[in-house]
Computed example of a mutant assay.
Amino acid sequence: MGRPTTKTDLINAATINYDNMNVLISKLTETELSTPFDFSEDEKKTEAHWKRDKNLRDILIHLYEWHQLLLTWIQANENGENKSFIPEPYNWKTYGDMNVEFWRKHQSTSLEQAGELLKKTHKDVLSLAETFSNEELFSKGVYKWVGGSTLGSYFVSATASHYEWAMKKMKAHMKNCKK
């Protein structure tokens, strides 16, 4: 399936990828869950997140925090507050530092708590998406605060695309554990 461009496709892709991610999580062995993520041997994995996330909790918290970004950004702007998606002091050039801060913030969060937080925000994000029309989600220029993109593209990025990222990372970890 390509990147969603309609409300129906967005809801379906987010739901399917979330469900697929949870199926993959359910297949993780005790060894895979207890072995720290380590991708240092793979010279192709150079992005910061390959070093940042050390376990499943870190991935789930990352997804949760990006849901929170989306939810608070939309709520603030709909209430007339001019708020950027990436909160100050961060921006699109420094959001990696923000991700590290999310990671630090949740080092004492349990895997179970992370799963519950993500489950709730996934539902909240899909419920919020349902409140918008197809045009509001996927037509440019509907909301000045979205900039040159569409609101739907933010929903896709925070859900379906991010869930694909999480599954790719989990599969790479699973493969490493079999070596």
Rank of each mutant, 00 (worst) to 15 (best):
D53I: 11
K44M: 09
T8P: 00
S26F: 07
D42A: 05
K45M: 15
T35W: 03
N20T: 08
R57A: 15
N17V: 06
T15N: 09
K45P: 03
F39Q: 03
N20V: 00
N22R: 10
V23N: 04
W50D: 03
I11D: 01
K54W: 06
E41I: 03
L24F: 15
T8C: 06
S34A: 10
E41T: 07
M21C: 13
F37D: 05
F37R: 05
N55H: 07
D53M: 15
D19A: 14
E43N: 09
I16P: 04
E30V: 01
K45H: 00
L33P: 01
E32C: 06
K7I: 11
T15V: 02
N17E: 13
W50S: 02
P36T: 02
E47Q: 15
K54N: 10
S34V: 02
K51C: 01
T6G: 07
K7P: 10
K45A: 13
N12D: 13
H49I: 12
Y18T: 03
S40V: 04
A48I: 11
M21K: 05
T46Y: 08
I25Y: 05
Y18H: 12
E32H: 05
S40L: 06
D42H: 12
K54R: 14
K27Q: 14
K44F: 09
D9S: 12
L56Y: 00
I11R: 02
N22Y: 14
T15L: 00
L24C: 08
K54I: 14
W50A: 05
K7R: 10
D9G: 10
S34M: 09
P36E: 07
T6H: 14
R52Y: 14
L28S: 02
K54A: 13
E30L: 08
K45N: 07
N55L: 06
A13F: 05
S26D: 08
S40D: 06
L10R: 04
D19M: 12
K27W: 07
N22W: 15
Y18L: 11
S26P: 00
I11P: 03
W50R: 02
L56P: 00
I11M: 12
T46R: 11
K51P: 01
D42M: 04
T15D: 06
S34K: 12
R57Y: 10
T8Y: 14
T15F: 00
S34E: 11
L56C: 12
A14P: 01
